[in-house]
Nucleic acid binder design. Structure first.
Length: 512
RNA sequence: CGGGCGGUGGCGCAGUGGUAGCGCACGCGGUUUGGGACCGUGAGGUCGCGGGUUCGAAUCCCGCUCGCCCGACCA
């Protein structure tokens, strides 16, 4: 069969149409699909398995830092949202509102909300849970002895988005939201920063996504927060993706919900709260960080299948039996070994497709290691393996493979992070003058502007108006103020005024 | 939510007024099998939904819906 043959499931190349590539990849890798409800997605088993692996890695870390999981209601009384003025302003425009409790048949036979069942107080489908959790926390916290209160919940939330994309922005998405209460600012701040570090570690070590750790500007921070930290990643189209956020909520929600405690010296004291979250958006981030024109590429730490075994001949019962017997000891050994805290997951592809077809199938799904076992290998006690990330096929013995594969997976995991970091650095510039800044962000080919630009580290005067003007002109925003960068003594790259005192170069980019 | 484009079998598409077809995928039989096999034979579609025009609508008109792209908004 000629290799030039065009298959219906061949992906549009990233260079040709980046968003078409993304959409097709999500489909052919069987990660998710659109549902009958606008803007909502069905996460398919393979995509959900990835989410479960992310969940497991993060949940471990959340518990290791002393938090407990709990669950709060999907519905929030409308009045709760109003208790924090900035918060309600931030979310009012994208809330699903429940107004009735039952349906009835209209004269024409269609179902309509029963007017008699109108709710006395309308319920909001949670866009986030600060308020409903705050109401509980106010009752849970009595004394300084109850602090810190460290809670997390895994949940779905709904934000009525106008423009959606699978995983990156859907009306309903899955996430975890941590909510904590502290005795003072310092402890809340310590918590906020600690969880930010947990997110950095998750992103880099588990997802192999290099991130910039930083603080949001006033304009970009969470509605209701005192300040917001974030991790920002660069996708292959060089746009920024906010991959996680951690908020020091100050006393804003404590005030709104009466979260107070009696201090050691018996003074009724207003508490401090935090919240932090990452979502199924991370899956979009993984896709856009690592995958190529052949399909999905998964970091081994979250791959539902680490190793796929492709028997070269297995159609006849006696052939299959021979391969099964040959593989049995190998599968046993692999099962007993773990990578990133999870047993090596192996799948043998017994389907009667031809080997080449199987290769393409598993390539699309991003399985890190592909093993081939044919008659020649079996005679010699060997097998052949190849990596999704490329390189030559390797021949090794069946008995050595189980040990080798751990190193191979670790190498792949590390290699993905390094490759992504190199890509990001290659598309990051320190710029000091506006002309260069404009040139960097102005598409050379307006027909496909998505493959231009990247990150600019540039000075900022600190003025929100300046930030807004840049966004207006170039659709570029300040993604974050990096935390571990030295103060910058130069000028604002946008307006030429002196950079704000103590501020480092900030990260400017187009974003998702 | 505004502007543009689109929705025909699982996927990709053809079909401009006469009752629906192609490629891939799928079922069965056989020959095959180290990077997308071939032959034979089958199955599968209320043409997004609802109304209208017409003797007759996938096709023309209206409304709605969903998707994609561009804006505004956002994890």
């Amino acid at each position: 069969m000629a290799k030039t043959k065009t298959h219906a499931d061949a992906l549009t190349a990233r260079e040709v149409d980046y968003s078409a590539w993304y959409n097709e990849l999500v489909e052919v890798a069987a990660l998710a699909e659109h549902s009958a409800v606008r803007g909502c997605m069905v996460i398919r088993p393979y995509g959900y398995a990835i989410w479960e692996n992310i969940q497991r890695a993060l949940d471990e870390r959340i518990k290791a830092t002393g938090h407990s999981n709990a669950y709060f209601p999907l519905f929030i009384p409308k009045s709760f949202l109003q208790k924090e003025a900035n918060h309600v302003d931030g979310f009012a425009m994208e809330c699903a509102v429940v107004t009735h409790s039952r349906l009835k048949k209209a004269p024409d036979g269609t179902l309509v909300p029963d007017p008699d069942s109108a709710l006395a107080e309308e319920l909001i489908v949670r866009p986030t849970s600060e308020t409903i959790i705050g109401e509980s926390f106010a009752r849970w916290v009595k004394s300084y002895r109850d602090l810190p209160l460290l809670i997390n919940q895994w949940a779905n939330v709904v934000r009525w988005e106008m423009r959606t994309r699978l995983f990156l922005r859907t009306m309903e998405f899955l996430w975890q939201e941590g909510h904590t209460v502290h005795a003072d600012y310092e402890d809340a701040e310590r918590e906020t920063r600690q969880m930010l570090e947990v997110y950095r570690e998750l992103a880099e070590e588990v997802l192999a996504i290099p991130v910039i750790v930083g603080k949001k500007t006033e304009r970009e921070k969470f509605a209701g927060a005192m300040h917001t930290y974030c991790i920002e990643a660069m996708m292959q189209d060089r746009k920024a993706l906010q991959a996680g956020t951690s908020h020091n909520l100050g006393q804003n929600f404590a005030r709104g919900f009466g979260i107070t405690y009696q201090s050691k010296d018996q003074v009724e004291t207003l508490a401090w709260t935090t919240s932090w979250g990452v979502s199924t958006r991370l899956i979009g981030g993984v896709i856009m960080t690592h995958s190529d024109d052949q399909g999905l590429v998964l970091p081994p730490a979250i791959a539902p299948v680490h190793v796929v075994v492709i028997p070269i001949r297995c159609a006849k019962p006696e052939e299959r039996a021979a391969v099964e017997a040959y593989l049995a000891p190998l599968l046993e050994k692999l099962k007993a070994r773990a990578f990133a805290g999870r047993a090596i997951a192996v799948q043998v592809d017994w389907s009667d497709a031809r080997p080449g077809a199987k290769h393409f199938e598993w390539e699309k799904r991003g399985v890190p290691v592909r093993v081939e076992v044919g008659p020649r290998d079996m005679e010699q006690g060997k097998l052949v393996y190849a990596l999704r990330t490329g390189g030559e096929k390797t021949t090794t013995t069946r008995d050595a493979f189980a040990d080798e594969v751990l190193d191979v997976l670790a190498r792949v995991q590390r290699g993905l992070l390094e490759r992504a970091r190199a890509f990001r650095d290659e598309h990051t510039r320190d710029l000091d003058d506006r002309a260069a800044f404009d040139a960097f962000f102005t598409p050379k080919n307006p027909e496909k502007p998505e493959l231009h630009g990247g990150f600019v580290r540039g000075g900022w005067c600190g003025d929100a108006g300046c930030e807004a003007a840049v966004k207006e002109a170039l659709k570029v925003t300040i993604r974050c103020i990096p935390l571990d960068a030295p103060a910058f003594a130069g000028a604002c790259v946008a307006c030429g005024q002196p950079s704000a005192a103590g501020l480092p170069r900030v990260v400017w980019a187009k974003s998702y």
